[in-house]
Write a protein that binds this DNA or RNA. Sequence first.
DNA 1: TAGATTGTTAATCGATTAACAATC
DNA 2: TAGATTGTTAATCGATTAACAATC
Lengths: 218, 218
Amino acid sequence: MSKVVSIQVIRRLPRYYRFLSELEANGVEQVSSTRLASIMSATASQVRQDLNCFGGFGRQGCGYSVSELRAEIGKILGLDDTHHSILLGAGNLGRAIATHLNFEHLGFKLDAIFEKDHKLVGTMLRGIKVLPDDEIENYVSTHNVDTAMLALPKDSVEALIDKLYELGIRNYWNFSHFDISRKYVDTIVENVHLSDSLMTLCYRINERKQSLETHTNP
Amino acid sequence: MSKVVSIQVIRRLPRYYRFLSELEANGVEQVSSTRLASIMSATASQVRQDLNCFGGFGRQGCGYSVSELRAEIGKILGLDDTHHSILLGAGNLGRAIATHLNFEHLGFKLDAIFEKDHKLVGTMLRGIKVLPDDEIENYVSTHNVDTAMLALPKDSVEALIDKLYELGIRNYWNFSHFDISRKYVDTIVENVHLSDSLMTLCYRINERKQSLETHTNP
DNA sequence: TAGATTGTTAATCGATTAACAATC
DNA sequence: TAGATTGTTAATCGATTAACAATC
């Protein structure tokens, strides 16, 4: 039985995967932990520790095979899986999500899209017809749905979650500000909080500005 | 001179801010570190340590004033500032960003939007006219621009960054996969990697699935 | 074999948690 | 005053880094 891997390590896996994909695309065949570390802005020690959570993928003296390591990390992440998912909300954000992402290469398949606004219902997104949101219940109870992706304003989310949870959905990709995992503790939720990210940027900009001022006027 | 605050603490500040805003909207006037901790899924110790990085905002025996603390954190984050920003890319993602976010409450002001696709140039977004991307250079050199927000596909990003950097822009909100801070180390970059988030969700879903299987078939 | 680089154990560092005196 | 809760110091825990034997 494998030990639990810390969330810090997990969150680095997609970055390893991306950088390895790039190296592979550039025809690089072997990579050392030192080189990978410099790409990741990390230490070689960390790279080796991270990878050895999952197995010994390298060869002493030679380093790691780029294509092998990329494939291994893809397997660890489960990118070949097909988690069936539905998207709630076909506004600008929902459309951005639906059109931007290669779900099939990320372990998911987007099967259906639901939207409240009648003007958007019936339009097509990536070959998927946008359905009216009063068909959610019927759809979820007649299809295999693993994951719900929420791209709608906060106020409409809570009631929707209640319904989705009751219908058995436990995995959420959440762009709203509603705190799903506090209400339903047995869910898996990945939050994307765009405004948190902007606020952090704001802080960091100011932090530097202040440190520059302090250094010039000491 | 104040000590440097760790990035972990910084990234919690927007969450404190959000939850305090909610409490305030619900008419709550006082809050203890214990209650705040339960909302944040943290310990009371952590809450007090976090806040005391910036000052003693509480009163022994009483707790924290919700509105005061919210205002203080807003000030720490710098949400009353007006960092002038431009958005590059008016596709679905760019439009989602432009329309979803209250820049004015997050320390920013969106002044201009640029787009390569001629079909989108000239359309309006939040009252801002979308300009053709060959006007970027002229605009940035004649206006005060603090921050660039990048909502375009990776391949077009590197050349664009080179130009923006040369024009003096050092702060970036980056949705692309191009690693800005590796090439330009004196930049401040907040990355939003949607596909990383999805991959992490994929891992976590599989992780649970496996642990359930192990527990039922030991 | 010599050089390079891994896998892994040990040391260090920093973040989180606990404890408690100060004080409202 | 007694009860509650902060601010802050000390203890713990876990993640990162360093070191080095194993080995390609």
